[in-house]
């Protein structure tokens, strides 16, 4: 089976070193080899169990808006803020002004 670790790194947004990529590929291969047993069962007609709604007696509540945490409390845990915003590096080398449009 093809395991494209670089593609998975991009999807999961996790950067690995070359050595780590090798180990990751080996580990994923051995885990997927183990879970191959799941293909022994014919389950096409079986409905899936995804989460709480499928587990006895626990139905999801209505999603009712309610007051959350105060903004200051949340911002204090962030690595970088500006005023009331989370501050992050630019999206790419080119700045917003250069491209003349909002890339948010």
């Amino acid at each position: 089976m093809e395991i494209d670790v670089k593609h998975l790194e991009a999807l999961a947004k996790v950067q690995l070193s070359a050595d780590e990529e090798q180990v990751m590929e080996k580990d994923l291969r051995s885990i997927l080899e183990h879970v191959k047993r799941l293909f022994e069962l014919d389950v096409n007609d079986v409905p899936p169990t995804f989460g709480s709604g499928d587990i006895f007696g626990v139905d999801l509540d209505e999603d009712i808006p309610r007051e959350g945490l105060k903004r200051d409390l949340i911002l204090v845990g962030a690595p970088s803020i500006h005023d009331v915003f989370f501050k992050v590096p630019r999206e790419s080398g080119a700045s917003r002004d250069e491209e003349g449009k909002d890339r948010s």
Binding site: V35, F39, V43, N44, T49
Partner: peptide, 8 residues
């Protein structure tokens, strides 16, 4: 597939 087997 795993979610279906979870049902079983």
């Amino acid at each position: 597939r795993a979610a279906r087997i979870r049902t079983l």
